[in-house]
């Protein structure tokens, strides 16, 4: 919680226009927006937590549960879709057992759907950290996850 207080010192209490920058800072610091953080920010800015939550859920960049130790980004852009990203997403859901934006119970994995990552001619694209997996097929997913488990357990 003290980290939040550090962030808040950089902003003026009650200035509603600081909301998004604060949310971004907190997300960078904590990896997600916790309930406590939202309540604290609300008190700091004099805003209802409902308003903050409503605004934050409008943007894809904010998450409300801690990300997994390995976080995957699956492209949901037009070209990847045409190249078959829908079965890939379905396989991801099936293998991990969670919806996009959620984290697996063991804390290893989370994934999100993103807009175009610029790999249109290599799609469907799945990005893990700095690594881009290209031409991903649904049947590749279980193996990919098994391999990544090792990485997750190292973290």
């Amino acid at each position: 919680m003290s980290k939040i207080e550090d962030i808040l010192t950089r902003y003026r209490s009650g200035s509603h226009e600081s909301l998004i920058p604060i949310l971004q800072d907190v997300q960078v610091e904590d990896g997600y927006l916790s309930e406590e953080a939202v309540v604290r920010i609300g008190a700091f800015l004099g805003m209802s937590t409902t308003k903050i939550y409503g605004l934050a859920t409008f943007y894809d960049q904010f998450r409300f549960a801690p990300a997994g130790r390995v976080h995957l980004r699956v492209c949901n852009g037009t070209t990847c879709f045409v190249n078959g990203s829908a079965p890939v997403i379905a396989a991801m859901k099936e293998t991990l057992g969670v919806e996009p934006g959620q984290t697996t119970r063991d804390g290893r994995f989370s994934y999100e759907l993103t807009a175009c990552m610029g790999g249109c001619n290599e799609g469907p694209v799945v990005c893990v950290g700095e690594t881009f997996h290209t031409h991903v097929r649904a049947e590749d997913i279980p193996e990919m996850i098994t391999k990544l488990k090792v990485l997750a357990d190292l973290k």
Partner: peptide, 20 residues
């Protein structure tokens, strides 16, 4: 009281409370 607001975006938009 501001207990409810629009939550989410696009087709997923719904009216809900803080933290849904």
């Amino acid at each position: 009281a501001t207990s409810i607001d629009f939550i989410g975006r696009g087709r997923a938009t719904h009216v809900g409370t803080a933290m849904d």
